[in-house]
Nucleic acid binder design. Structure first.
Lengths: 122, 122
DNA sequence: CCTTGACTTAGAGTCCACTCCAAGCCGTAG
DNA sequence: CTACGGCTTGGAGTGGACTCTAAGTCAAGG
């Protein structure tokens, strides 16, 4: 599929897709005889995973390292597992922290609710 | 207290504190006769709240708007409440999304666990 | 044949949130 | 008196992740 179609199916701009290829997040993209990129379903699946890592705040540089390992083959399975487990642990901790922040924020909002009735804070 | 002490109590570098004052996140910081900043406990409380907003990914620009409202006095209570409620809603949604991401990541890790035993993926 | 439009590249520019730098003032210790 | 450390300022530089620009190729439509 063309970069335009790939872009609309993934929600990533064509610009960004070229950038991702340049920095090594996307590799071995097939090319048509005219040099245009020809994306596949495999590419869709890979980029969806990349998006998940990105959406959970993994830096592109680390995603690139994961891509390196992936490319190196089955001997890097344990290393990739480790990388993902570390990332998941960080994510769990961040989730817990964000939950605490949300609780505190809700307390503050409760204060505001009664303050608004009284027309003044505290 | 000096900027150094304030910095060590809040974990925010002196550089960043001056930057925060410059962009309007910190206001009316008392000054000593020699021009040095003299932070108070009130400043500690305010910056702690700023940190909470920042840690929950509120852009500094929006925190600055909140500071504007706060400065304008009790007539802006409802507006501030609204701002915080919108932020809390976004945070709840983000939390739910991150939880889904974590679940998916854990599924992937489970795949890796068994793949590592077999020495190959899938 | 020429225009249009989608694609290609290398490289420059943007935005956010810092982070650092240079130059200078002030108070104390030697 | 001078050196030093800590503070002050305006402004420049950094890093991450895009985002855009310029200049070019190529295929289809009028």
């Amino acid at each position: 599929m063309t970069i335009k179609e790939f872009s609309s199916r993934t929600g990533i701009s064509a610009h960004t897709l070229r950038y991702y290829e340049k920095i090594g997040l996307l590799r071995h993209i097939r090319r048509l005889p005219n040099g245009h990129r020809d994306f596949s379903e495999k590419d869709i699946q890979w980029i969806a995973f990349v998006q998940r890592l990105k959406d959970t705040d993994m830096p592109l540089e680390q995603i690139r390292r994961y891509a390196d390992l992936r490319e190196a083959g089955d001997t890097t399975l344990a290393e990739r597992q480790q990388l993902l487990e570390n990332h998941a642990r960080g994510l769990r901790e961040s989730l817990a922290q964000q939950q605490r922040h949300l609780d505190k924020l809700n307390e503050k909002i409760a204060l505001y609710r009664s303050a608004v009735k009284r027309g003044r804070l505290s």
